[in-house]
């Protein structure tokens, strides 16, 4: 592509505003859809693994040490390295990338679900059990509603990371927003490279904003409606749990 200037920002602006880049199977909207598709697939798999596991550990308290140390190891893995490793070990195509992204997404979701379930006031859980709720009823009717906000915080942190990192798919197959980065580097097209990066960043912020909205509405009415002063300690405890579920993973 020919740019009117050597200035990086001008090139970026021209690339982003060129209608050619906004249409067709190689245009930005299509790439966004592909990108979100991979994010969705990754999150589905990650949540299918992490939510039951997090609920089990949060509810029973069993395997807590294992989870904490296991998550530490998972977090230390470089995603791109895992893509190549999986590609070498198993297959070509997009699946190695998705599995590598799943490894990235599991730790925040798992720690969020675990933190959410275990942040629920133990006295309330004890009272529920004393009244004759079964363990399943305690989990689904008491712990999940009260821990939902923290749990969604974990999913939110996971999605944010996966949206930003799903660019790795482009190394295996010309799919997703990573394509702009790979192409931009290969053909030395800075407008494409940085324009693509901006699209990814904006998408990440937008998705995160949407999740923040969902998280806000996940607070049960009873927890929002506390008397001034009453339960403020509990509330600040919850905020800390929310913060650690999110901050601990980024």
């Amino acid at each position: 592509m020919d740019y009117s200037s050597n200035n990086l920002f001008v090139q970026m602006g021209e690339w982003l505003s060129d209608p050619v880049n906004w249409s067709g199977p190689r245009g930005i909207p299509m790439r966004i859809l592909e990108h979100l598709g991979y994010v969705g697939l990754t999150m589905l798999i990650a949540m299918a693994i992490a939510i039951p596991l997090g609920m089990f550990v949060g509810h029973t308290g069993r395997g807590r040490v294992l989870i904490v140390s296991g998550l530490g190891i998972l977090r230390a893995l470089p995603t791109l390295g895992m893509v190549f490793l999986f590609a070498l070990l198993f297959s070509r195509g997009v699946l190695p990338s998705v599995w590598a992204l799943v490894l990235l997404a599991v730790p925040p979701v798992l720690s969020g679900v675990y933190a959410g379930i275990s942040s629920v006031n133990r006295t309330v859980v004890d009272a529920a059990r004393s009244m004759g709720l079964t363990e399943w009823q305690i989990l689904l009717r008491v712990e999940v509603p009260n821990g939902l906000q923290v749990m969604i915080g974990g999913v939110r942190a996971g999605i944010l990371q996966v949206v930003a990192t799903a660019t790795v798919v482009a190394y295996a197959k010309a799919d997703g927003l990573g394509v702009f980065l790979v192409e931009g580097t290969q053909i030395n097209d800075n407008g494409r490279l940085f324009g693509g990066a901006v699209v990814i960043a904006v998408l990440a912020v937008a998705v995160d904003g949407l999740m923040a909205l969902i998280q806000k509405f996940a607070i049960p009415a009873g927890l929002r409606a506390t008397r001034p002063g009453a339960g403020s300690l509990k509330e600040s405890g919850r905020q800390e749990a929310v913060a650690s579920a999110q901050g601990g993973t980024t």
């Binding site: 009272a127 059990r129 009244m131 009873g222």
Partner: peptide
């Protein structure tokens, strides 16, 4: 255990009420 507990009322020191329910 669950049936036995439902056949007895239980009141504890802190009310232990479920905060998300009226």
């Amino acid at each position: 255990a669950a049936d036995l507990r439902r056949s007895m009322g239980y009141v504890m020191q802190s009310s232990g009420l479920m905060p998300h329910r009226s």
